[in-house]
Design a protein around this nucleic acid. Structure first.
Lengths: 339, 339
DNA sequence: TTGTAGGCGTTATCAG
DNA sequence: CTGATAACGCCTACAA
């Protein structure tokens, strides 16, 4: 800026004004300064701005699993929210590991980011609370901040479980499996809970809604669940499966195909999240859609609201999931119900 | 730091030393200072460090299509390289739009990032050259920097096209389609070129290697190509397809399934990139694998080398692709060749 | 081994 | 409307 000022024959302060309040500079001077900036190839130094301002022009999202497109879609929503406020978005991936998460968080605090959005490994971890104490707004994404000591955005997973099962029973299925785990994940618990609620409300036998636990929400685990499913004796084998997420569902579909089970004729499948690859599967998957991008946009809105207002009250936004029916649960002429 | 110094009863310089050259401080003082830092919850201010240092501790990757897992895998490789150098990675998505790309680049220059990795919308765009002139190391990822005025990492796409076709001809296919476009994308051109090379070397009739152009490398376009394929008269219809990337292949697989074509019996499919969802498809897809993470790691290495050495010579790393055979091209008892 | 001084590039303040 | 000046927090000489 000093060079620009010299080259334009004005003072440093004037250059600053051109940048920050152009209205306060005469058109002639302004143009002279702008020409000088262009000639010298001047680019604002963001770290200096930040140092002065005390905070960066950046938001950060720490996602739980970079291998799951769901989180990238959420990130896209956040980015669109950030853009509206002319902020950049820093994306990190904890990969489900608390240590990585902590390291990322540490860096972000050092960068003095304006706010942090996070889908945490453990929503009750102490390092999250630490962030709040530092005065950095934090919003939990896709996790209900039950304790209310921070903002959160989430989707009603109990309801999601309910509509999945309702759809399957509507389609005439009488023996259903829930595939998903570990139960340490809140989402898994709630989706299962919703499923069981509906099941019992319909007066079904609890034994006809079996739970096939998995160790993670991945394609590989979905395949494994498919194997176990196929190993069940025919009379106990479910005619439909509700998977805790789409990756599981894709793995399951693959395994089913491999062993010659037809979907949906021999086995109907419902996934969760409605990622693009669910719709793109060989047999398009029915899935419980979460408003991924809106989740992100809302999270961005909340974090900015908190950043802008010291007397901010924490808010818990909860969205409603929606069933998207596709071929994997299409009605079959002869429902797979052998008496 | 001033507060920490006061609280520990030492000078500001000593606190700095504890942080930057702990060896130069007596153990006793150091511990006193560290305790003070912990008590006060002191966290280094990264922007101040950056301002002083003149450059940030950050690398950036501008990817071409956030919806394609391929680029996320590359990003993961870059991140691992960045981590080794204790740098953060800033991930941006140009989404194939030059304007977005330029905007991101602009921000990154303002942030004074240490280096930029980019899969550019247009490798010859002027704003890329601009970056180099600013003295910021830039590495092109997955694009050969033909002109040699920057480093680049890429995979031999001509070779990739060759091995895909060789695999299909080995499997006995005599009529093959190449699905992909637009040809403005270098990769598409080269993969097609490689395919045609082999085809003619084998003395095949050029008319038996048809090109089904697409407008983008997406699942939806893959579906569309599938429709066009099905519309061909049986005698002209290829028995195998080579897709310019896995998203196309997945779309094609879906369309084929929808209209009752069996894969690989009626139609064999080869994809490109070997993203996870290729292996996870209902019929696991044969694909030409690119060493995605290594691509990223190498790119990170190159950009750091350039940043560290002013007398740096640009380097063009080129990797060798590898065919991963799966069910989508498995040998069939009765090759789908109706004379 | 410890303390002191100056400056990195911006922005805000305040007097012309 | 313009220009001088003092921070912002840290790092690195250099001096003690």
């Amino acid at each position: 800026m000093k060079d620009v000022a010299a080259s334009a024959g004005v003072s440093l302060g004037t250059v600053s004004n051109v940048l920050n309040k152009p209205a306060a500079v005469s058109a002639a001077t302004r143009e002279r300064v702008e020409r000088a900036m262009a000639e010298l190839g001047f680019v604002r130094n963001e770290s200096a701005r930040q140092l002065r301002a005390g905070t960066s022009r950046t938001l950060a999202y720490v996602m739980l699993d970079g291998g799951n497109p769901f989180f990238h879609d959420v990130a896209r929503g956040i980015e669109s929210g950030a853009e509206d406020a002319d902020l950049s978005l820093f994306i990190c991936n904890s990969d489900g590991r608390a240590a990585r998460e902590a390291k990322h968080l540490d860096r972000l605090v050092q960068q003095r980011v304006q706010g942090i959005l996070i889908t945490p490994v453990d929503p009750s971890a102490s390092h999250l609370r630490e962030i709040g104490r530092r005065g950095i707004p934090l919003v939990m994404v896709d996790r209900l901040g039950g304790t209310g000591d921070c903002c959160s955005v989430a989707v009603d997973d109990v309801l999601g479980g309910r509509i999945a099962i309702e759809h399957l029973t509507d389609r005439g299925h009488e023996r259903v499996a829930f595939v998903g785990g570990p139960e340490s994940i809140g989402q898994v618990r709630e989706r299962l809970l919703g499923a069981r609620q509906v099941w019992s409300e319909l007066g079904r036998d609890a034994a006809d809604l079996i739970h096939l636990p998995t160790e993670a929400l991945t394609v590989a685990e979905g395949r494994g669940a498919g194997e176990r499913l196929a190993g069940l004796p025919a009379r106990r084998r479910p005619t439909a499966v509700f998977c805790a997420n789409d990756l599981l569902a894709l793995g399951l579909l693959q395994q089913a195909t491999a062993i010659g089970m037809r979907v949906p004729e021999d086995l109907a499948i419902v996934g969760y999240d409605d990622i693009e690859f669910a719709a793109a599967a060989a047999v398009p998957l029915t899935s419980v859609r979460q408003p991924r991008e809106e989740l992100g946009r809302t999270a961005a809105r909340l974090v900015l609201a908190e950043a802008g207002d010291p007397a901010h009250r924490h808010e818990q936004a909860c969205f409603v999931p929606e069933l998207v029916a596709r071929a994997s649960t299409a009605a079959v002429r002869h429902p797979a119900r052998k008496r």
